[in-house]
């Protein structure tokens, strides 16, 4: 299975994401933001960091990069995409996922390991968990306060597209939403960093199942 990790100036979790994907068995290519065409891959991962310094609005400038046209084409063709932290912000800015990530309610950057409830197992990303399972995954963000309007929220809820919620109020996100799926369930955006919980030395391995189930599902697809 092939994966591409996008690299913007200011990305700083690109290597971490590549390591997590490789450890789970993906063949990973890192793709520079100025490349308009993506290689043929099964999964595109948009990593965390501060693309373009988070200037203007997190993810907004990255969303205008040539490589994001490739990302949109990939998704419209039914491809899989995972966006973590700044990657989630890029996915909302490209409108591949609904909603927006606003400044944390506490107005401070927050870095700690938090509990997440797995809200749905009906996706390639979450099928390795059980519904209602609580997993420990680190967060590290300044703008993770997920917002969407009532109509969008109702759709997310009714279509079972809320992937994860925080077990506590971490950043003021609507209904504690930590991650959401696209309508075809092939795009996941989430603020917490599963790639920081794949190794006993990280202090926890609850992120492993996400990468492994992705690989399993893609192989069987």
């Amino acid at each position: 299975m092939k994966a591409a990790v996008l690299q913007f100036p200011g990305s700083n979790c690109d290597r971490d994401m590549a390591v997590a994907l490789e450890k789970s068995g993906f063949d990973v290519t890192v793709v520079w933001h100025k490349d308009a065409s993506l290689p043929k891959v099964d999964l595109v991962a948009v990593p965390g960091g501060f693309s373009f310094g988070d200037y203007l609005r997190c993810g907004a400038i990255a969303a205008q990069s040539p490589v994001c046209q490739g990302l949109v084409d990939h998704v419209h063709a039914g491809g899989y995409a995972l966006g973590v932290c700044n990657g989630f912000q890029v996915l909302t800015e490209t409108r591949l996922l609904p909603g927006a990530l606003m400044r944390n309610a506490g107005l401070k950057f927050v870095c700690r390991t938090v509990g997440l409830t797995v809200e749905t197992t009906d996706s390639a990303f979450t099928s390795g968990y059980t519904k209602g399972q609580i997993v420990d995954i680190p967060v590290a963000h300044h703008d993770g306060n997920y917002y969407c309007d009532d109509e969008t929220f109702a759709a997310l809820r009714d279509q079972d597209r809320i992937a994860f919620t925080y077990t506590e109020n971490v950043n003021g996100a609507r209904e504690n939403i930590a991650g959401v799926l696209s309508e075809n369930r092939r795009v996941l955006g989430m603020m917490p960093h599963p790639e920081r919980a794949i190794d006993a030395n990280h202090g926890g391995t609850d992120g492993q199942a996400l990468f492994r189930s992705m690989l399993d599902q893609l192989v069987s697809a």
């Binding site: 700083n12 950057f109 870095c111």
Partner: peptide, 11 residues
């Protein structure tokens, strides 16, 4: 220290 990213780079 929760205002500092202590885990980026994954090591």
């Amino acid at each position: 220290y929760e205002q500092y990213d202590s885990q980026v780079m994954g090591d």
